[in-house]
């Protein structure tokens, strides 16, 4: 059987603090296959970036992985030494950050940053690295790439810069890209172009993409499957159509109702009452139970089971059915 490119199994990230240990990522499991885009959504602080950083091995101290597994094409990487992990970064997995304005070193030309990355991972001559750099820029749609290779980042517009960032993340041909809100800092007009670009690269190259975003429109447009995170845990995981149209977890349903989404028509936006609990102060049972209109005693007393691919879609004791959602709306 073909291994998924990325396989996260019961991942736990912990942060020791003076007031006890926090778990920004708690028993998270998911797979991403070649050529697939997994959208990751959830409120601010839900642990989306923390999960991505854990996968690529760039957790900031004092956060660290305390249990669970991360497998890249079947090979465990969560227990690798820092230098082994460094070799994998860029070469087999890449990351794209939110702000293209600050992601590029202002004092090095685009070409210098590309060739240093290429030569770090691939054993090629200077000339060959230069050619590959130009090809990488062409692939992400930078016009006159050969002429622009000696330009500095500030000579590109925001959207072009994010293209350069993507070229940098892809230039050593990784199998996995973690894109942490790659369009949030961009003009609305260029957001769609960048998403289209990611989608195309994913299809053409068979790259697996973890796409973190707050934008349901982006999810609907680009993702194959979607993972909904709440307070460090997976709330729901499933094919994008199903999750968007018939959410099983009340949180997902609330999240949909609070985001404008063209495909949903002109329904009035509803806000989920309350706010996500702080990590140091999680309720005993289901983390969402204090805000959930369907919560019962069982929800408040017992933590919900953790979900995995193909193993229940929502971490909820009383998942919504298509019918019950209609009742909510009525």
């Amino acid at each position: 059987m073909q291994h998924p490119i990325l396989s996260v199994r019961n991942l736990v990230v912990e942060i020791p603090t003076r007031h006890g240990i926090l778990r920004p990522v708690d028993q998270v499991s998911y797979d991403i296959h070649a050529g697939e885009i997994l959208g990751v959504v959830g409120e601010s602080g839900a642990g989306k970036s923390m999960t991505g950083n854990a996968v690529i091995g760039l957790l900031d101290r004092p956060a660290r992985i305390t249990s669970g597994e991360i497998l890249l094409s079947g090979e465990p990487i969560h227990n690798k030494r820092p230098d082994e992990l460094r070799r994998l970064r860029g070469k087999t997995m890449g990351m794209i950050f939110q702000d293209p304005l600050t992601s590029l070193n202002p004092l090095l030309t685009v070409g210098e940053q590309l060739t240093e990355t290429i030569q770090e991972h691939l054993n090629v001559s200077n000339a060959e690295a230069q050619d590959r750099a130009v090809a990488a820029l062409e692939e992400v749609g930078i016009p006159a790439a050969r002429a622009r290779i000696n330009s500095y980042p500030h000579e590109f517009s925001g959207g072009m810069r994010q293209r350069v960032v993507i070229a940098l993340a892809l230039c050593a041909e990784p199998d996995l890209i973690i894109a942490d809100e790659p369009t949030t800092a961009l003009d609305v007009s260029v957001q769609a172009q960048i998403i289209a670009l990611l989608k195309r690269l994913c299809r053409e190259r068979g790259v697996a993409v973890m796409l973190v975003t707050h934008d349901m429109g982006v999810i609907a447009e680009a993702a194959d499957r979607v993972a909904v995170m709440y307070a460090g845990r997976l709330a729901e995981l499933g094919p994008v159509r199903d999750v968007l149209t018939t959410a099983r977890h009340p949180y997902t349903s609330g999240l949909m109702a609070s985001t404008p989404l063209a495909s949903q028509g002109q329904k009035r936006l509803r806000q989920i009452p309350g706010s996500m609990p702080r990590l140091g102060n999680l309720p005993q049972g289901c983390a969402f139970s204090p805000r959930c209109e369907f919560a019962q005693d069982k929800c408040r007393a017992n933590p919900t089971p953790h979900i995995q691919d193909g193993d229940g879609r929502a971490a909820c004791w009383f998942p919504l059915s298509a019918n019950s959602e209609q009742e909510v709306d009525a």
Binding site: I56, L58, R86, R87, L88, R89, G90, K91, G94, M95, F97, D99, T102, S103, L104, N105, P106, L107, L108, E116, T117, E120, H121, V165, L168, A169, A172
Partner: peptide, 26 residues
Amino acid sequence: RMDYIRFARARGLREKSINFRHALKN
């Protein structure tokens, strides 16, 4: 602490290059 240092790490560059090529010049 800048993003481009983080991005340089994410591209798998060596600490030596990050410290002396990317950070020092800035």
